Amino acid sequence: MSGDTTLHSRILADIEGQIVSGEWPPGHRLPFEVDLAAQYGCSRMTVNKVMAQLVRSGLIERRKKSGSFVAQPKAQSAVLEIHDIKDEVQSLKLAYGYALIARTVRRSDAEDMRRLGLSKGTDVLDITCLHTAGHEPFCLEKRLINLAMVPQAADFEFVEIAPGPWLLAEVPWTSAQHTIQAISADKDAVKLLKLSAHEACLVIERQTWGQGGPVTNVRLTYPGNRHVVTAQFKPGG
């Protein structure tokens, strides 16, 4: 690991720790980038990359000419909890099943780096698996795990246990982001979810971070006519 990468991870972990612990509450102004660079003995560019990652994860916000501040919770945003797919299926009173389709350890490519928000390449675990409900396809899962953050995943087979619950039990996470979109079924979805060509699918993409960097990116593809997403809202304080 290079010096820049080590410093990047250290600064990121330190700031995330201050925010997650509540030491820096919402609205707290972070030290200026030039001051952080002097504190850690690094270039301002390294600090800027850390700040950009914190903005992407929603932990801080930048205000022109004022600096960076711990972000206020956004009342208008839907908060989607990270559910185990097994629980989703069992809530429908159906038998749950899981099958590993493919598992590969490899060096990250440009698309992997984009999905995980990595500035440099690292080893990743690429997993494809299928969840079933009542012996019918329920959800196609395609997941990348950042092995720089979760090296023990490289030795776990994921034959009996799905990666989602394993990660929840193994790695504390500090923040997550969901993206939901409707797409036409690709060839993998057509085959594994037993769909017709170009049938509508619902895709939930989730990025999860821990202290120190991105942990995993997962794309969950559901048949569009068999799945809905529900989010609960509460009025702002």
Rank of each mutant, 00 (worst) to 15 (best):
S9V: 02
S9E: 11
I11K: 02
D14W: 06
E16G: 00
E16A: 01
G17N: 13
Q18K: 13
V20P: 00
V20E: 01
V20Y: 00
S21H: 02
P25E: 02
R29Y: 01
V34H: 12
S43C: 01
R44I: 11
T46W: 06
V47H: 06
K49P: 02
V50M: 12
A52K: 15
R56H: 08
R56S: 11
S57W: 11
E61N: 07
E61R: 09
R62D: 00
R63H: 13
K65R: 11
F69V: 10
F69E: 10
Q76M: 06
S77L: 15
S77Q: 15
A78R: 08
L80Q: 08
D84S: 15
D84H: 15
I85V: 15
K86D: 10
D87C: 03
S91E: 14
K93A: 11
L94R: 15
G97R: 05
Y98G: 01
A99C: 03
A99H: 10
A99P: 00
L100S: 07
I101Q: 11
I101T: 07
I101L: 15
A102G: 03
R107M: 06
S108V: 08
A110E: 15
E111L: 09
E111M: 08
D112G: 13
L116S: 13
G117A: 11
K120R: 15
G121N: 06
G121M: 06
T122I: 11
T122A: 14
T122S: 13
L125Y: 07
D126S: 12
D126G: 08
I127C: 05
H131R: 05
G134A: 07
P137L: 07
F138Q: 02
E141T: 02
R143D: 01
R143K: 03
L144R: 00
N146C: 06
L147Y: 00
M149E: 08
Q152T: 07
A154E: 12
D155V: 01
D155M: 07
D155P: 00
E157R: 04
E160N: 11
E160T: 11
I161H: 14
P163Q: 08
W166D: 09
L167P: 09
L168A: 11
A169D: 14
A169E: 14
A169R: 14
E170S: 12
W173F: 10
W173R: 03
T174L: 05
A176N: 11
A176I: 04
A176C: 05
Q177P: 00
T179V: 13
I180V: 14
Q181T: 09
Q181K: 08
A182H: 09
S184F: 05
S184A: 11
A185C: 04
D186H: 06
D188W: 08
A189K: 05
V190R: 12
K191F: 07
H198T: 07
E199M: 02
L202W: 03
R206A: 09
R206E: 05
Q207D: 11
T208N: 01
Q211M: 13
G212R: 08
G212K: 09
V215K: 01
V215T: 08
T216L: 04
R219L: 12
L220E: 15
T221D: 10
N225Y: 02
N225M: 03
R226D: 09
K234E: 12
G236H: 03
